Simulated scan of single mutants.
Amino acid sequence: MTTSETDFWTDETSVLFTSFWGWTPETWGTVGWSGDRGKTRRANLLKGLTDPFITVCYVTSNKTYIDPKLKGMIAGFMLVTHETGDRDEFTHPIHHARDPDQWRHSLRAVRAFSYLPEYRLRAQDVFPELSRTARHVSAMGEVIADSAVINLLRQTPWIEVAAYSPAIMDVSNANEEVTAGGAVRPGPDNEGGYSVPPRFGKLARDLYVLKLEGNTNAYLGRSAEGRAIYKIGLSASPDMRRQLFQKSMPRGAFQWVTVRTSSGSGFSAFNCFADAVAAESIIKKQLVECAEWLGGEFYLANEDDIETAWHAAHASVHIGGGKV
């Protein structure tokens, strides 16, 4: 089966709405039903759903390991096939011991997509009747027939993310192109680390600064002299970038936090990609002079260094209109 960004969700594609306890398609590549009633529901749905079909998911859980910002939000959607199987065939082993009687009657998801955090929809706003139908949506799933709702879900900015498959291996690119002195060249007009569909290519970009919270001395294996580790970049979704960096690290005492974004710091996001690149280049050049480059877009810096470079970057570029 071959699908592309332009044809996998057409006007003819069936759309199912359901809830998950969390949103981790990289380890949970399935939608499933529980018990004999659930098995019957799956069989009946397959008679009327296209193959593949879209499953739109919102998050309901209050569990401590779930991002609280996802609670009640439509987190993303999956492209689901009619391939049936047991839940554990389509999920990472970390899930196999949890709730062993739940969602055994499953279908395989082959692709997954997350809505950008800055554009996520509140489930109750899209489905006002959810207060009385939530139990059915959670247990059985609800087929969406309203074309206006489908178009809203399809047009809300999303990115493709990993969908669990036991055959997929994690391969990283170790090659890194840098300029003299650690001023890393800006990337191409994309989000880096994930794919943005062409239809969302005109989204405004934010310059952002992430900070690694934790014992910096321990992380470096030497004294940080009161400085912290920062990541500089630009993105249509800084929070998605933060999440991706966090997921790349083992769980532990170190956490990436967003300390600055253009739109969150009294500036406007960059509607022109060239302006965003110019501002990013300025902040990096400033940090090369006053901070310690740690490779890539990472710097060991004081808060004052970041503040000075941040304002220099925005003062030197007229947002939306090129350099002053």
Rank of each mutant, 00 (worst) to 15 (best):
V259P: 04
F8P: 01
S172G: 10
K323E: 09
R120N: 11
P100I: 14
E191S: 14
I282F: 06
P52W: 00
A278M: 13
E213Y: 07
V110E: 04
Y299P: 00
K47W: 06
E118F: 01
P52G: 03
W158V: 04
V171Q: 13
P166R: 10
L294M: 14
A167P: 03
D101V: 00
L210G: 02
F113E: 08
H92T: 06
A276L: 10
M249R: 15
G182T: 12
F200P: 09
W310R: 07
A109Y: 00
G322F: 08
M140Q: 07
M249S: 12
G320D: 13
I159R: 05
P188G: 13
D189H: 15
D36P: 00
K39P: 03
A167I: 09
F113Y: 15
A112C: 04
D88T: 15
R87F: 01
A224C: 13
I319C: 14
H318E: 14
T84P: 03
L220R: 02
F20T: 00
T64V: 08
V171I: 14
K202L: 07
E213R: 14
V324P: 15
R185L: 15
I306M: 06
D88K: 11
M1T: 06
D101Y: 00
G29D: 01
A75C: 03
P100A: 15
A43W: 00
F298L: 15
